[in-house]
Simulated assay, not measured.
Amino acid sequence: MTYVRSHYRRDGTFVKGHTRRTRPRAAQPYAARGRATPRRTPVPRPRPVRTGPTTYVGPYYRADGTRVRGHHRSISPRTVAVAAGSGLGFIILILVLLALASGSGDSGKTPSGAKPSHSTSAPASQHR
């Protein structure tokens, strides 16, 4: 006899742990004749209809040690609005920082390799 641990079937029903009786080979009529046992085709499970945006959650282990398979989770419209708004705000912040860094602060400085120009207040005859 073989002990079968408690488990969940593919359709979600729970099976308690139990002892299963093993059959001797002579009791299987198809095996004695050499015929293959007919196989049942698995019934396809209906896929849930996803309406709206979804995100993929990767597989992980819970604190109690239970493994959770990877799955798609629907996102609420509020979460989508917050995510879209934060992305736009981040892009605007980067554009403002780039404009400040490249534009207005460097206009009064002279480049390091160039000679300074003559001042316009002094007459040109004094510089020769």
Rank of each mutant, 00 (worst) to 15 (best):
L95N: 08
Y61P: 02
D106P: 00
T13V: 06
T19C: 11
P53K: 07
S125R: 11
S121P: 00
P42I: 04
L97M: 14
V43F: 04
R69D: 09
R20W: 10
Y61G: 05
G34D: 05
I75Y: 00
A36D: 05
P46A: 11
V4G: 00
V43R: 14
R21H: 13
T54Y: 06
A101Y: 09
I75N: 11
G87F: 05
R5L: 07
A124E: 13
L93N: 01
K16T: 14
D11V: 01
A31M: 12
Y60Q: 07
I91L: 14
P44S: 11
R21D: 11
A63N: 06
G85W: 07
V49Y: 01
G105Y: 04
R45C: 03
R47L: 06
S86N: 10
D64I: 03
L88C: 04
A83E: 15
S121T: 10
T79Y: 08
H7F: 09
G89I: 04
P111E: 09
R39Q: 13
R21K: 15
Y61T: 15
S76I: 02
Y30K: 09
R33F: 03
T51W: 00
Y8G: 03
R50H: 12
V4L: 12
P38V: 06
R9S: 09
V49S: 02
S102C: 05
L95S: 09
A84F: 02
D106S: 08
S6C: 03
S86F: 08
Y3K: 12
R45P: 02
A84W: 03
Y60P: 03
K109M: 07
G70Q: 03
R45L: 12
P38M: 02
A83N: 12
T2M: 09
V96M: 11
R10I: 00
D64W: 03
H7T: 01
R40T: 10
A122Y: 09
D64G: 03
K115M: 07
R35L: 12
R78Y: 14
G65V: 02
P116L: 09
T37K: 12
T13W: 01
P123C: 06
G105K: 02
Y61S: 15
R128M: 07
H71I: 04
F90R: 07
A26W: 11
T120K: 14
V57Q: 11
D11F: 01
R23H: 13
S6M: 01
P46T: 12
P24T: 15
A63E: 10
A99G: 15
L100Q: 05
G34K: 05
L100S: 07
G65R: 03
V57L: 10
P46C: 01
R45Q: 13
K16N: 14
V57M: 08
